[in-house]
Nucleic acid binder design. Sequence first.
DNA 1: TATGAATGAGTCTTCATTCAT
DNA 2: AATGAATGAAGACTCATTCAT
Lengths: 205, 205, 205, 205
Amino acid sequence: MASYIATNHRRDARKGTLKAFKRQNILDAARATFDEQGFAGANMRAIASRAGYAPGTLYLHYAGKEEIYADLLADSLSRLHRAVRDCAATADTHGVLRAPFDHYTAHPADLSLGAALLHGTDDLPAEIERQMNGRLIAALSLIADAVRAMTGASEPDANLEAINLAAHQTGILLLHRAGRLNMLGFAPDALVERYIGRLIGDQAA
Amino acid sequence: MASYIATNHRRDARKGTLKAFKRQNILDAARATFDEQGFAGANMRAIASRAGYAPGTLYLHYAGKEEIYADLLADSLSRLHRAVRDCAATADTHGVLRAPFDHYTAHPADLSLGAALLHGTDDLPAEIERQMNGRLIAALSLIADAVRAMTGASEPDANLEAINLAAHQTGILLLHRAGRLNMLGFAPDALVERYIGRLIGDQAA
Amino acid sequence: MASYIATNHRRDARKGTLKAFKRQNILDAARATFDEQGFAGANMRAIASRAGYAPGTLYLHYAGKEEIYADLLADSLSRLHRAVRDCAATADTHGVLRAPFDHYTAHPADLSLGAALLHGTDDLPAEIERQMNGRLIAALSLIADAVRAMTGASEPDANLEAINLAAHQTGILLLHRAGRLNMLGFAPDALVERYIGRLIGDQAA
Amino acid sequence: MASYIATNHRRDARKGTLKAFKRQNILDAARATFDEQGFAGANMRAIASRAGYAPGTLYLHYAGKEEIYADLLADSLSRLHRAVRDCAATADTHGVLRAPFDHYTAHPADLSLGAALLHGTDDLPAEIERQMNGRLIAALSLIADAVRAMTGASEPDANLEAINLAAHQTGILLLHRAGRLNMLGFAPDALVERYIGRLIGDQAA
DNA sequence: TATGAATGAGTCTTCATTCAT
DNA sequence: AATGAATGAAGACTCATTCAT
């Protein structure tokens, strides 16, 4: 009897894993599709077919387009946070400072999700919104720590610089993706490094 | 006969002016609508009605939604360029450095157009694209001039800093609009000023 | 100036009439379609095509399927009420007593609308519901008057009989439409007459 | 060998009983679901889940939604017939006269099935149709017998009155369910009794 | 038997665009 | 130049039904 229950547990667990795996698969297809077409431009048929499904199947996993998007957004910020945290964990202070840039450079499709940030995220479930903000703040906080470690700045100052850092990298990433940097002959990496160099150098001086 | 021709010229000119005026009117309506609803969300009926027209009328002035959008984008960069140029003309060097920020703060609806920059502008007519890039480069060039004037940097360095400046302000504007700055208790203006202050201060030192 | 306004008025009036005419056209198509397929079974494409329109056109006149249905229901009861009232106006007392039966016999498509009465009409706009009930009560009231005139019954009794009359005719109409009367070899008209005959005869005796 | 066969028979019988039991279970779930949502509104998943099954399982017992519906309809009339017959068997003449009303009052979910009668039952399998009509005629025949017993009417007259009785009760039940009786302050029971009272009283007089 | 994931046709609805007036 | 009714091609979503397990 005990083994039966145990077997059931294991089966349920495998089922849960499978379900999660499939959701991830859909999420990947959706990320790519949203990246190429934007939220409004992407259609469920395209996402489904990229995930290897018929349209209706998506609805077995998500309540609709919006929910997929929300999950994608949450997932994206979650991974950004993780990326920053992993850097911080290895005491790679310089890495922390460029973590957002590196993360989005490595995962360009995630960047499009930032388009959501343009029109705000008012129609997102409040729960998701709260979670997202939490991740964002946590990441910024880690960056601020790194700034303090590198420059000895006061906490308020470090917070300010952390945001400026994030803003700068956001801008660079967007301009780069929009093709406005190539056009001018600048490498995004050099621009980011220069910004960071100045930030560190200043305080050091 | 000569007077007849002259009259025609004048009439043509007035006609041209009237036409341009009407296009501007439509453009204003479109900008506001795109700002509120996004490109896909905005519909021609809404734009037309805000411009005081019936839907069909828009097609007497524009070939379609995309063309309105392209014109809007071109117009927006054109006005940004003008704003920077006007600052430069009055030798307001500090003003030039924050000109992009100030311009988009004053005209928030223009900022949404930046969403276009996310998906690139590949489907824009090449002519428009070239024109836009020209305006952008011209504006950046003026900013680089101001950087040089304020810091004595070399031309290549100044160009770099000009882009970093633009990237930073882009990032700040987007984060602000997305509500991520309020949430953290920071004022966009202070962040921009700090960035500029550091830029100037460094070189001055 | 006055003539100009007058002209405008006339044009508006004509426009209003045209609009009303088109709505009526759609309503007719919808009635027939709902009659054949039921509310859920009928699809907008079918209604539109029967009205001589493309699907999208219906939405220029109605907000959706439900609104068409509500209008149809309101219209139907309105016409029933009118039928009863017209009978009453000509002092055709006997005619009043069989007015519901005659009306639905003449307009069989209206009968299907009664299917709405099966599941109740909770999801109808309250305004429509109120209006419908008003028409129904008004019609019943006229029937009760006729009952009183024919039988000398007290008012409460007459009201009771009016409802029983309506219920009976409702039942007959439904059984007839369901093909259950033919099957048994009875003519709906004879059944209705017998009921009325008994009602009148009783009191007379 | 014989015992083996016998065993098989018994097993088959049990199997048949079990099968019938399961079908009944599904039928009950379906009846409740159709009652709440209507035929088109009810979905197989809901029916299955109410029956304690997964969707696919229903198809082991029924060929599809329509077949469930047909079986439900047949079952409903069968139970109505049984109800009338049981009354007749106890010589409860008055009870027979109100049997349809009482039956549907006791089993309101069955009433919704009458909606099928609205659109006719043309798409029902002929076999079912024939069976249903048989049950209906049998029930009406028992009612006609009761009418004759209570009033001494001739057979043709009694048949007529039986149908009128059924029609009246049908109407009352539908109006009641549609909420049109409460609205007017009448109790269905009183209306039915008045009708029957008049029917009996007349002939008695 | 039973499952339930997957299917894909079908539904309502929206909206850029056209065209007769 | 302007209108606005009409179009019809999508799009999101639902659900009866199938089938591999």
